[in-house]
Design a protein around this nucleic acid. Structure first.
Lengths: 228, 228
DNA sequence: CATTGGTATATGGTATGCCAAATCTGGTTG
DNA sequence: CAACCAGATTTGGCATACCATATACCAATG
């Protein structure tokens, strides 16, 4: 018997103002180069609520969430400030990234399908093209996309959630990162080796390679990125 | 010349009501056995604000923060619910724990002082006494204290922050965890070996031992803990 | 002119009230 | 008796007004 019910989409449950304000603010903050010297880092509740056309209450809740995530800092009777992470904090984040992606790679060796692993090749190829383009931004995004893919293969939702937050911050310093063609080339080689290890289902090797690869980035940032 | 200035302590800047409400709620929630079958899992804003003697606004902000941390879930026009993590989520948490503590152990091999590492022996000894007491609660707390100590040795503040949040949830299921004397004994042996590896500054070994040790816990929880 | 103390303003924190949707309750109806 | 409907109640979302304090500005003072 044919299903006679008309197809009903649930009415777009318009998200709460808080959620929408949160998304808008997060997009705005992560979209700007906060590490530029002339970046505007101060915000005001009343100004923002007026510009969003909502009251301060849901806006404050969105700001509180961003505060907890470390993107802004709300100071009583002073203002709301977009947070620039210190170099030490960025290095700590990359360390966490290394640990979690390494674990994901190990997990992927048992849980990921051959097909899913094979999909990584495309990402490396895109990455390779960015190398030609020699643009830091695209390079960085393609690089992060590859690592997010490995993390997704591990199937641990919490790791994905944590690292998504980290990537936001690491991404923000890319304009402060020296672009070296050699480093990109070596990076691509690393990626190809990682894929090989995953395909061989060699958990120890994959975990080690991923960790070492990200620690290389950490060392690079430590040496060549100048923030604070 | 004597310093004639009177000694002035900065006035204790009383924290905001939001912060205090957050702390009180968090303590209350983590202090109760939310996995007990007859646990009260529903809260109400107005009831809580009345009992705390504050208005709903700061209370709501505290609840929103707990919501983001995953301790409660605020549902519009339904209520506020204390969140019971699913078994899969707990397992994911333990996996993250394993990855981050393993990384901390590796870091500790280079950054921790001999003295700091030596301090771990005391924790194992306390742990050993808890074995005699055969109480799940004390065992669990002493166990977590040991692992937090290793994480502290790594010196990565972000890892500490993330794992502190995880331990809250893992701690909450301890009453659902079967207490096995054999497991405790093997656990203590593991701990002593981990200390040895740290003292030998063998980063690879320490990292591996810590990871394997926590994965054992994960497997134990997977097999013997019944929640959901 | 430099210093100092008061005052106005800016700005995040808090209290309160209303709104809309979900739920509950009691009675009506077939 | 079951199904159902309407109004009352519950409850989180939101807007608004007021509060307290950090800062800026200005006048009084030497």
């Amino acid at each position: 018997m044919i299903d006679m019910r008309i197809s009903i989409e649930p009415i777009v449950e318009s998200q709460s103002l808080k959620v929408r304000a949160y998304a808008a603010l997060k997009a705005a903050i992560t979209g700007m180069n906060i590490y530029d010297d002339n970046a505007q880092l101060k915000l005001e509740e009343r100004d923002l609520s007026a510009r969003f056309g909502i009251s301060r209450t849901p806006l404050r809740e969105a700001l509180a969430q961003l505060d907890q995530e470390g993107l802004v800092k709300v100071v009583a009777r002073r203002g709301i400030f977009i947070v620039r992470k210190t170099k030490a904090e960025i290095l700590d984040m990359i360390t966490v990234w290394a640990a979690l992606e390494s674990m994901s790679a190990k997990l992927a060796c048992t849980v990921a399908s051959d097909q899913a692993i094979a999909g990584l090749h495309d990402l490396v190829d895109q990455f390779d093209q960015c190398e030609v383009a020699l643009k830091m931004g695209e390079y960085s995004d393609a690089n992060i996309a590859f690592h997010q893919a490995i993390i997704a293969l591990g199937g641990n939702a919490l790791i994905q959630q944590i690292t998504d937050g980290l990537f936001l911050h690491v991404r923000a310093i890319r304009n402060r990162t020296i672009f070296e063609k050699d480093r990109v080339k070596r990076s691509i080689e690393d990626h190809r080796e990682i894929i090989k290890a995953l395909e061989a289902r060699d958990a120890n090797l994959a975990g080690r390679l991923v960790c070492e690869h990200t620690i290389k980035l950490k060392n690079h940032v430590e040496k060549y990125v100048d923030i604070d």
